[in-house]
């Protein structure tokens, strides 16, 4: 395994970064300024839809990217694949944490208003928390191996092994726990009752945050690849 010459196409990175920055600025302005219908209890918290949901979509995208690069590592890929798997997991964890916080806060003031609970073992919430636990274990495992090539291999094995178990939760959890999330238990996901103006902001928000993921991820890959060139170890 030897580091390849160029990890990142810097020109493409700069173009995408500028586009994403402009796109997200417009999207956030629209999220706060556009008028939305007032619904009892939900009120202005409905705007959280533009942030909470895209965070999850982004984390799922990150999980796929990370697992795909872990498979690449085992198929004889370079240390660069390992860097990509790690950085996707890191940025994904950041998005997952933000999704969890925005979700807990939102539900506290809407679904659980009056009951005053923070955590109610909603299936999706549980699954997301579990994915974060897995990544936590993945980072701990990485810090326990000193030699880069061996670390790449061992971490990739764990990442794939853990990724295999997560889909089981899709089957197990909904049978044991009730969900209030849209799209589960016959709740409509995105239907005609959702105001059209919200779709107008929501879809661009999803694209924008996934774009932000790409920018942060590529930036970190670039940094780690530079470290690898200088020190022979991407994490020094």
């Amino acid at each position: 395994m030897k580091p390849t010459a160029r990890a990142v196409d810097v020109r493409r990175y700069r173009i995408v970064r500028n586009v994403v920055l402009a796109w997200l600025t417009a999207m956030i302005l629209a999220a706060f300024l556009l008028d939305i219908p007032k619904i009892n209890i939900l009120e202005h918290t409905a705007r959280n839809l533009y942030f909470h949901v895209p965070m999850w979509f982004t984390m799922m995208a990150a999980v796929f990217v990370s697992a795909a690069h872990s498979i690449q590592v085992l198929r004889g890929g370079s240390l660069l694949s390992d860097i990509r798997a790690l950085q996707a997991a890191r940025v994904g964890t950041a998005f997952g944490l933000m999704g969890l916080v925005t979700g807990i806060w939102w539900s506290k003031f809407t679904w659980y208003v009056g009951t005053d609970v923070w955590w109610n073992f909603d299936p999706r919430q549980t699954m997301a928390a579990l994915q974060l636990l897995i990544y936590g274990a993945y980072f701990v495992l990485r810090s326990a191996v000193d030699e880069p090539v061996r670390r790449a291999r061992v971490a990739a094995v764990y990442n794939i092994f853990a990724a295999v178990t997560v889909p089981f939760l899709l089957y197990v959890l909904p049978r044991q726990l009730q969900s209030l999330h849209p799209g589960a238990d016959g709740n409509p996901a995105f239907s005609e009752i959702t105001a059209p103006v919200m779709r107008l902001v929501f879809y661009p928000a999803v694209i924008g945050f996934i774009g932000l993921f790409w920018v942060l991820y590529t930036q970190r890959v670039r940094l780690a690849a530079a470290k690898l060139r200088v020190t022979q170890d991407p994490e020094l």
């Binding site: 579990l130 936590g136 274990a137 701990v140 191996v145 092994f161 178990t165 197990v172």
Partner: peptide, 25 residues
């Protein structure tokens, strides 16, 4: 996996428990 790491002690529970949540339920 643990046998490939440098400090082998208490790592196994950390790696094992997140994977076993579906099983535990």
């Amino acid at each position: 996996i643990i046998a490939r790491t440098s400090n082998r002690g208490p790592l196994l529970p950390v790696l094992l428990f997140p994977i076993l949540v579906p099983l535990l339920l």
